[in-house]
């Protein structure tokens, strides 16, 4: 039984739900751990619980601001996530080797996207591409259809260039967490096989936390 991780969850103070409640529910659902990635803030008081990681989701419109924020948080938090969506930010995120995850590259309603160049950058820089399954839960009809086709397109490129990928819930409350098996079923809607979904929920998150795809790490291993 692999260890599952949900790497993008929002908790108090951004939302009303405390991180400890989310973690205990996630554990009951079968996760080994979750990462709290609030927008542009991180709590230092939290990382005492086992299985609870701290990260930050950088949300900005300008590339200079993004680079400044990545530099500011780099080394301080376990996980640097970039709030994607616009083409400019997506590009800046996958080109930056200190970014760990590009969250929802096709936006929350399918307005953005990634092309072959960006996915290749993501693979080279070890930036994980996130499939935000919460968007499939919260949208219906035309929005969901657009999202599904955008995500399929990205999945095709991710498979071709072997970029790391993640499946996340972006939960803002207890009611938005989904158990691993439910996540597999939702990921199957995009076209992920059970093995791929399993990897996106266990191997890839573990690798991202261990910075397995980062350049410095590779050099260390070779030495």
């Amino acid at each position: 039984m692999p260890l599952f991780y949900d790497l993008i969850v929002h908790a108090h103070p951004e939302t009303e739900t405390p991180a400890a409640d989310l973690l205990s529910l996630a554990r009951r659902y079968g996760y080994a751990g979750i990462a709290i990635t609030n927008h542009d803030q991180f709590c230092e008081a939290q990382p005492t619980l086992p299985g609870l990681f701290t990260g930050v989701e950088i949300q900005t419109e300008s590339v200079t601001e993004l680079k400044r924020a990545v530099k500011h948080y780099g080394g301080k938090v376990a996980l640097v996530v970039v709030h994607g969506g616009s083409e400019k930010i997506n590009r800046a995120a996958v080109e930056h080797p200190r970014v760990d995850v590009l969250a929802h590259p096709c936006g929350e309603k399918g307005e953005g996207g990634l092309n072959h160049v960006l996915v290749r950058y993501a693979a080279a820089n070890g930036v994980a591409i996130d499939f935000n399954l919460d968007a499939l839960i919260h949208t219906r009809r035309a929005d969901r259809a657009r999202l599904l086709s955008k995500m399929r397109e990205i999945l095709r490129l991710v498979r071709k260039y072997h970029a790391p990928m993640l499946v996340t819930s972006h939960a803002h409350s207890l009611y938005e967490l989904r158990a691993p098996r439910e996540m597999f079923a939702l990921a199957a809607l995009i076209g992920l096989s059970t093995e791929e979904a399993r990897a996106a929920l266990s191997d890839f998150p573990a690798g991202i936390m261990a910075k397995r795809w980062k350049k410095e790490r590779e050099v260390e291993v070779l030495d």
Partner: peptide, 15 residues
């Protein structure tokens, strides 16, 4: 898994 609310009450379902 796609159900997020029933009658404006937020829910989460797990099999």
């Amino acid at each position: 898994a796609c159900i997020h609310s029933v009658n404006n009450v937020r829910v989460g379902i797990r099999v």
